[in-house]
């Protein structure tokens, strides 16, 4: 099978992309890394009439401003996953190392991944756990959305048809103050997650009590989800050593009703949520890791 014919335009700026989207409506699609979109087009599962190629816009490297890491939307996964990279968000690095294969990481972008909103996406889980936000440009200007607000069920987003994600912002990692964990179960190396859990903990001060804790889970339904606040807020004010990661994992799993597919049943996924949450949150609470990921 080959793609249904379409027209192609290069955007030299996000503004130009937005105006092309505004002009062509819902049949136009943005092309970032293309690692999901082009595959779907090859299989005729997606049939845009116009592709607006964002790649000419290019991407400056991630930067740290005022305690926040700002990651341009067209940042490739390989940039995040690079073991030598230190741009201040190691949880994103760990998650990016789990994304696809070397070719997917060479082309895929964080903005494209969030816009594609796959319910098994590792990067979305990491962004959610970090409490990240996205900057979105539309005809009326820029707006900021929590990643949690961006993602809506069934592989869609809160983006309007003429909006584009221009960047992602997450808090900077502070050794001794913030901790993270990422655990994933796949049926085969490099594949989409059966379940992935990202956890992020911030202490009020080094060695102090928990200020915030977030857990995000991929692979359990229609979108990547954040553990309900009533579960994670219970950890606030607690010394890290006393937090009950296992209990939280169980409670989180109990509240989810993941569906099954050819790779795993919903019930099995629920058990994984419990186990992987304990492991990820345990990592986040126990240390401020900088470990390399065994893929």
């Amino acid at each position: 099978m080959v793609a249904v014919p379409f027209a192609y335009r290069r955007a030299e700026s996000f503004e130009e992309a937005v105006s092309l989207l505004a002009e062509h409506g819902e049949d136009a699609k943005l092309l970032a890394g293309g690692q999901s979109l082009v595959a779907m087009m090859n299989l005729r599962l997606a049939r845009p009439t116009l592709l607006v190629d964002l790649n000419p816009i290019g991407s400056p490297p991630p930067s740290v401003v005022g305690g926040q890491v700002r990651i341009p939307a067209l940042t490739r996964h390989k940039t995040l996953a690079d073991p030598r990279a230190s741009f201040g968000a190691p949880l994103l690095s760990v998650a990016a190392r789990h994304v696809g294969n070397v070719r997917v990481r060479a082309r895929g972008t964080i903005g494209g991944s969030l816009a594609h909103a796959d319910p098994t996406a590792e990067l979305a889980a990491a962004c959610l756990a970090l409490g990240g936000t996205v900057s979105v440009l539309g005809p009326g200007g820029t707006r900021e959305l929590l990643v949690d607000e961006l993602l809506v069920p069934y592989s869609t987003t809160a983006l309007e048809p003429d909006e584009v994600i221009t960047g992602v912002t997450v808090p900077v990692h502070v050794a001794g103050r913030t901790g993270f964990g990422f655990h994933e179960m796949v049926r085969r190396s490099s594949d989409l997650a059966i379940v992935a859990v990202a956890a992020h903990v911030e202490l009020a001060e080094a060695g102090g009590t928990i200020a915030t804790a977030r857990v995000a889970v991929a692979g359990v339904g229609e979108r990547v989800v954040l553990a309900p606040a009533e579960l994670t807020e219970g950890l606030r004010g607690m010394p890290a050593g006393e937090a009950d990661a296992e209990g939280l994992g169980r409670a989180l799993a109990a509240g989810l009703r993941p569906s099954g597919d050819v790779h795993a049943s919903g019930e099995y996924r629920r058990r994984l949520v419990s186990v992987l949450t304990r492991r990820a949150l345990g990592d986040a609470l126990g240390r401020t890791p900088t470990r390399e990921v065994a893929a």
């Binding site: 190629d53 997917v104 060479a106 082309r107």
Partner: peptide
């Protein structure tokens, strides 16, 4: 379909020739 694009491997099936 792996080819090197400026030295790094990419899937030629997932890139448009125009790109």
């Amino acid at each position: 379909c792996t080819v090197l694009l400026d030295g790094e491997p990419v899937s030629a099936c997932l890139m448009l020739a125009l790109q």
